[in-house]
Design a protein around this nucleic acid. Structure first.
Length: 887
RNA sequence: GGGAGUUUAGCUCAGUUGGUUUAGAGCAUCUGCCUUACAAGCAGAGGGUCCGCGGUUCGAACCCGCGAACUCCCA
C-alpha cells in the first residue's frame, strides 16, 4: 500500500461521515442500556456556522462520542430555533427585493412567504455542522415551530395562564420606534454614545398652589433647583424631582414643589436613596413614562405617568408642545427654547451607554406598553434551589453566583412580540376589549358566552402578537421528545432528564435558567444533570467575534484548509471551561501538524509490517519499552477518565496529544525501532500496532476522522472505531513508570552534554558509567546506547581520564570522544548545578530545623522533606567528587 | 453606580481542599541537525518580583484585608 506523504483530510472526511451515517451509528432508540443524552442548543434557523457553534458542538460531540464508546446509548438531538425577529427580518428583506411590502400582505400570506423562506434557506447550518463530523441523530431533527411543538407552546401558555402565572399588563418595555415592536433585552445593543448633559433650572413653587401658578411670582423668586439630564425633550413627562434624603444641599426643599419649565406644571420634590449625590447636581428629574428606573421610582412613590411620545417616537398630545415632532428634533428645539428663556444654565459633554435596536439600529425607547408577561417569582424558587444544592451542576462553578444573583432579583418576563413569525398568542378579545385565553376560537366564544350570552361571535378576534422565541425554546429539553405534547411517552421517560447541556454563558438567563424553570413547572423534573459553560470566542486582540467587526473567520474555509480534525483540535486545545478562548489560526496549524505526525507514525508502522521476521534479534530492550508504554497507557487512560468527568476537555486533549507525540513517537517508537533496513520482531510489531490502536481510540472523540482512518489502515477490520467500546483502565505500575522516567532523564542529560560539547550527531561516543547500582542499567543499556549514539557502554569504579564528566541523577558519566576536550565548560556547568543544589539544601534544612514544622507537618510531608535532603546531599557529594576529578 | 470575574514565561493557559525539589505545558525565540516515518520534522537550551502592599501560617501562586489594571453582566 502506498501512503501519501502527508495526511490529506478532504476525501477521507467525506468517506467516513457517509459511512457512519450509512451504518446508522448516530441513531438512538430507547433500549436497556443507560442513556446519555444531549440536546443541542438550537441555532437560529437563519444562522450560518460560526466559531461559537463550532466550539459548542465540538464539545458536545466529544462528550457524545466518548459516551457511545463507553457503552452508553448516546443520543444527541439536533434542531433549529424559529428565531422570530431574525427570521421575520430576513423574510421582510426577501419581500423587499421582490417589491412587496409586509403591510400589503395579510398575516396568512406573509406566513406562506416565511415558510417558503424557511424551507429554502433555513437550516443551512445543520448541513454545515456535518462538515465537522458531529455525530447527531439526524432523524430527530426538531424545529421550534414543528406542529406538535407549536401546539405545546400554546398549551403551556394556556396552562400557565390558568395557574395565574401569565398576565396582561402595562409595563415598561424596550420599544423599537422604527419596527414598532417590543424588544427583549437581548435584542437591545448597548453602545457608548457621545451625548450632552443639560443643566436645567426648575423654579421652586411655594406650598400655596395659587402662588405657584402665578408666573410673575415665580420669575421674581430666586429659589430654584438645577437638574442634570440628557433628555430635555422628556421634561413634559416629569412628575417629580428627586434628591437623596441625606443630601445637605437640598434638605430645605424636602416636601416642596418645583415647576416644570415650558409647561409650568407643579411637581413634588421627593427623596429617595436611589439618587446618586455625585452625579450631575445630585438632582434627578423623574419621568416614569420614559425611563426604567424612573418608572420604578414612580411606582414606589405613587407618581403620575405622562407618556409624551407616540409609537413612532414623535411627541404626543400629552407633551403639549412640539406635538408630532420627532424626539431628537424636539430635543434640539426644546433645548434652544430653554436657553432662550433662561432655564438652560449650561451643557456638558457626556458619554454613556445607549440602547439601540439590534434590528433597526434605532435608539430604543423605554416605554409603557400593554404586553403579556410571565410572573417569575414562583418559577424561580425551585430553579434557584436546585442549582444552589448542586442537583444541577454548573461547570465551572463560578457561574452559580451569577445565576443566584439574577434569580434573586428576577423580573417578570415580557413574552409578547409585535411580529407574525412565531406562535400566535392564544388570547381573544370581544367588542368590549375583554380578553379570554383559549386554544381555539370556538373555545374562546364559549368562554365569552358563559360570561355574557349576548356575545357576538363574529366580533371575536385573536391577539395579533406572537410569543418571544425563548418562550418556545425553554421547552426544548423535553419537547424534542414530545414530552409535553405526549406526556409520559416512552422516549421522554427514557431520555429525560438529559445529561449535559453545553452552552455559552451569555444565555444563562435567557435560556438556561428558563429551561430549568420549565422543567420543574411542566415536567416536575430538572431538564439536565449538568451544564458546561463554554467561553466566548474572541479574536487575537480579545474582541468578541461579530459580524459587524468582520473578525469571524470563515469556518468552512478553515476546514478546507486544515481539515475538520485539525479545526476541532485548534478550537479545543486552548478552551478551558468557562474561560474565553482567543482564537488563533496557529492552533489549527498545530492540529494539522499533529495529523501529519500521526500519519507519519502510521507510515513507519506500515514499513515495519513488511519487515517482520522471526530472525530479528529479540532484545531485552524491546521488552522494557513495551512494558513501560503499557503502563504509560494505563496511567493516561486513568488521567483522561478523571479529566473528562470534571469536563476538563482541553486538558484531556493535551494529555492525549503529549502521550502520542512525546511518549509514543519520540520515545517508544525510537526505542523499539530496528536499525537501518533491519527486520523487526513480529511480537514487537504486533504490540506496537495494538498500542497505536489504543491511542486512536483515546483520540477518537476529539479527532474522529483521522483516528478512524488509521484504525482501518493499521489492520483489515470489520468493525469501526466509532463504536469500539473502551476497556476498563488498569492500575498503572509505578515502578515501571519510574524506570522509564529515569531512562528519559539519562538520555536527555547525555544528549545535553553532547550538544554543549558540540559533538556532531553522527559521531559515536564511548560511555563509561560510574554507577551506584549497575543493575539499574540492565534492561535499558541497549536503548541508552541507541538514543545517545554510544558505540560502547562500560562500567567503571573510578574516574576515566581524558573524558567529559557529567552527573545525571546519582551516577557519574565519562564520555570519550574524538574531539578535543573543553573542561572549563563542564566545570562551569557542574559548578552552577552545585550552587543550585546547595541553595536548595539550605532551604530544606531550614525547614527541617524548624521545630514547629516538624511538630505540625503531616508525616508524609516530613518524610518527603527528609528524602529531598538525602537526595540533595548525595548529589552534591557526587558533583564535588567530579569537580575534584577535573582538577 | 451595583454585581461577577480575571491578573502566573514574549503570547495562550495549567497549577484540583496551602507542603512532589527554588512554579509547569503548548506556541513563539535561540543553538545544532536534510539522522534510515515525519524540516508541517529531530535533539537541546534560554526565559518568571506568580499584579502591588499588608496579614494569617512552621509553610502562601493558592487563604484573609486594602489597592491597581482589565473584562463581562445589570442599571
Amino acid at each position: 500500500m502506498e501512503l501519501s506523504k502527508n495526511f490529506e483530510p478532504g476525501t477521507i472526511e467525506n468517506k467516513w461521515y457517509q459511512h457512519w451515517l450509512d451504518k446508522q451509528y448516530f441513531k438512538s432508540v430507547p433500549d436497556e442500556r443507560e442513556p446519555y443524552t444531549i440536546v443541542m442548543p438550537p441555532p437560529n434557523v437563519t444562522g450560518i456556522l460560526h466559531m461559537g457553534h463550532a466550539l459548542n458542538n465540538t464539545i458536545q460531540d466529544i462528550l457524545i462520542r466518548r459516551a457511545r464508546m463507553q457503552g452508553k446509548n448516546a443520543c444527541w438531538v439536533p434542531g433549529t430555533d424559529h428565531a422570530s425577529i431574525a427570521t421575520e427580518a430576513k423574510v421582510v428583506g426577501m419581500l423587499r427585493e421582490r417589491g412587496i411590502t409586509k403591510s400589503s400582505l395579510s398575516r396568512a400570506e406573509f406566513l406562506d412567504y416565511a415558510w417558503e423562506w424557511k424551507e429554502k434557506y433555513g437550516g443551512i447550518i445543520l448541513q454545515q455542522l456535518k462538515k465537522l463530523g458531529f455525530s447527531l441523530d439526524w432523524d430527530r431533527t426538531s424545529f421550534t415551530m414543528d406542529p406538535d411543538y407549536y401546539e405545546s407552546v400554546i398549551k403551556v401558555f394556556i396552562e400557565l395562564h390558568k395557574k395565574g402565572m401569565i398576565y396582561r399588563g402595562k409595563r415598561m418595555i424596550n420599544w423599537d420606534v422604527k419596527a414598532l415592536t417590543a424588544l427583549s433585552d437581548e435584542e437591545v445593543i448597548r453602545k457608548e454614545t457621545k451625548q450632552k448633559l443639560y443643566f436645567l433650572r426648575y423654579e421652586i413653587a411655594s406650598a400655596d398652589e395659587q402662588q405657584a401658578l402665578n408666573i410673575a411670582a415665580i420669575e421674581s423668586a430666586d429659589d430654584h433647583i438645577v437638574v442634570a439630564t440628557v433628555r430635555p425633550e422628556t421634561i413634559m413627562g416629569d412628575t417629580a424631582i428627586c434628591v437623596h434624603p441625606d443630601d445637605e444641599r437640598y434638605k430645605h426643599l424636602h416636601g416642596k414643589f418645583a415647576i416644570v419649565p415650558l409647561v409650568n406644571r407643579r411637581i413634588p420634590i421627593i427623596t429617595d436613596e436611589y439618587v446618586s449625590m455625585d452625579f450631575g447636581t445630585g438632582v434627578l428629574k423623574v419621568t416614569p413614562a420614559h425611563d426604567m428606573n424612573d418608572n420604578q421610582l414612580g411606582q414606589k412613590h405613587g407618581l403620575e405617568v405622562i407618556d409624551v411620545f407616540n409609537d413612532n417616537g414623535t411627541l404626543s398630545d400629552a407633551a403639549q408642545i412640539y406635538i408630532g415632532l420627532d424626539r431628537f428634533e424636539a430635543r434640539k428645539k426644546i433645548a434652544a427654547e430653554l436657553l432662550e428663556k433662561g432655564f438652560l444654565i449650561k451643557t456638558e459633554d457626556y458619554t454613556s451607554e445607549v440602547g439601540y435596536s439590534e434590528r433597526t439600529d434605532a435608539v430604543v425607547e423605554p416605554r409603557l406598553s400593554l404586553q403579556w408577561w410571565v410572573s417569575m417569582k414562583d418559577l424561580a424558587t425551585p430553579a434557584l434551589k436546585t442549582v444552589m444544592e448542586e442537583e444541577i451542576k454548573f461547570y465551572p462553578p463560578k457561574f452559580r453566583n451569577l445565576y443566584r444573583h439574577w434569580m434573586e432579583n428576577i423580573k417578570d418576563w415580557c413574552i409578547s412580540r409585535q411580529l407574525w413569525w412565531g406562535q400566535r398568542i392564544p388570547a381573544w378579545y370581544d367588542e368590549q376589549g375583554d380578553v379570554v385565553v383559549a386554544a381555539t376560537k370556538e373555545e374562546a366564544i364559549e368562554q365569552f358566552k358563559a360570561k355574557n350570552p349576548a356575545t357576538n361571535p363574529d366580533a371575536i378576534r385573536q391577539d395579533d402578537d406572537c410569543l418571544d422565541t425563548w418562550f418556545s425554546s425553554w421547552l426544548w429539553p423535553f419537547e424534542v421528545f414530545k414530552g409535553y405534547s405526549h406526556p409520559g411517552n416512552k422516549e421522554v421517560q427514557y431520555y429525560y432528564p438529559t445529561n449535559t447541556l453545553v452552552t455559552a454563558p451569555e444565555i444563562i438567563f435567557f435560556w438556561v435558567a428558563r429551561m430549568i424553570m420549565a422543567g420543574f413547572e411542566l415536567m416536575e423534573a430538572k431538564p439536565f444533570e449538568s451544564v458546561y459553560f463554554t467561553g466566548i470566542v474572541r479574536d487575537k486582540q480579545g474582541r468578541k467575534m461579530s459580524k459587524s467587526l468582520g473578525n469571524s473567520p470563515d469556518l468552512l474555509g478553515l476546514i478546507d484548509q486544515y481539515g475538520a480534525d485539525a479545526t476541532r483540535f485548534g478550537i479545543m486545545i486552548a478552551s478551558p471551561a468557562g474561560n474565553d478562548i482567543l482564537f488563533d489560526e496557529s492552533a489549527l496549524e498545530q492540529g494539522r501538524n499533529f495529523n501529519n505526525k500521526l500519519w507519519n507514525a502510521l507510515k513507519l508502522l506500515k514499513m515495519w509490517e513488511a519487515r517482520q521476521s522471526a530472525e530479528a534479534p529479540a532484545e531485552s530492550n524491546n521488552q522494557f519499552a513495551i512494558e513501560w508504554f503499557a503502563q504509560r497507557l494505563n496511567e493516561v487512560k486513568q488521567e483522561v477518565n478523571e479529566m473528562m468527568e470534571q469536563f476538563r476537555l482541553s486538558e484531556a486533549l493535551k494529555t492525549v496529544y503529549s502521550l502520542i507525540w512525546d511518549d509514543f513517537c519520540s520515545w517508544y517508537l525510537e526505542w523499539v525501532k530496528p536499525g537501518f533496513e533491519q527486520p523487526i520482531d513480529p511480537a514487537v510489531y504486533k504490540k506496537t500496532t495494538e498500542y497505536f490502536t489504543e491511542l486512536m481510540q483515546l483520540l477518537h472523540p476529539f479527532m474522529p476522522f483521522i483516528s478512524e482512518e488509521i484504525y482501518h489502515l493499521l489492520e483489515e477490520r470489520q468493525d469501526d472505531l466509532c463504536m469500539k467500546q473502551y476497556a476498563n483502565a488498569e492500575q498503572a505500575d509505578k515502578t515501571m513508570l519510574n524506570a522509564g522516567q529515569i531512562l528519559k532523564e539519562l538520555i536527555s542529560g547525555l544528549r545535553d552534554v553532547r550538544n554543549k560539547q558540540q559533538i556532531k550527531p553522527k559521531e559515536a561516543i564511548a560511555l563509561h558509567i560510574q554507577a551506584a547500582d549497575e543493575t539499574v542499567y540492565e534492561n535499558i543499556r541497549g536503548i541508552l546506547a541507541k538514543q545517545v549514539n554510544a558505540k560502547s557502554i562500560v562500567f567503571t569504579s573510578e574516574p576515566v581520564a581524558g573524558t567529559i564528566t557529567s552527573v545525571i541523577g546519582k551516577d557519574k558519566f565519562y564520555i570519550e570522544t574524538e574531539q578535543p576536550l573543553n573542561t572549563s565548560g563542564q566545570k562551569d556547568d557542574l559548578q552552577k548545578e552545585l550552587t543550585h543544589l546547595q541553595g536548595f539544601l539550605v532551604s530544606v534544612e531550614k525547614k527541617l530545623g524548624n521545630e514547629k514544622f516538624v511538630a505540625n507537618a503531616k508525616a508524609e510531608v516530613l518524610a518527603l522533606e527528609q528524602k529531598k535532603k538525602a537526595d540533595a546531599e548525595a548529589k552534591i557529594r557526587v558533583i564535588e567528587e567530579s569537580l575534584a576529578g577535573l582538577g
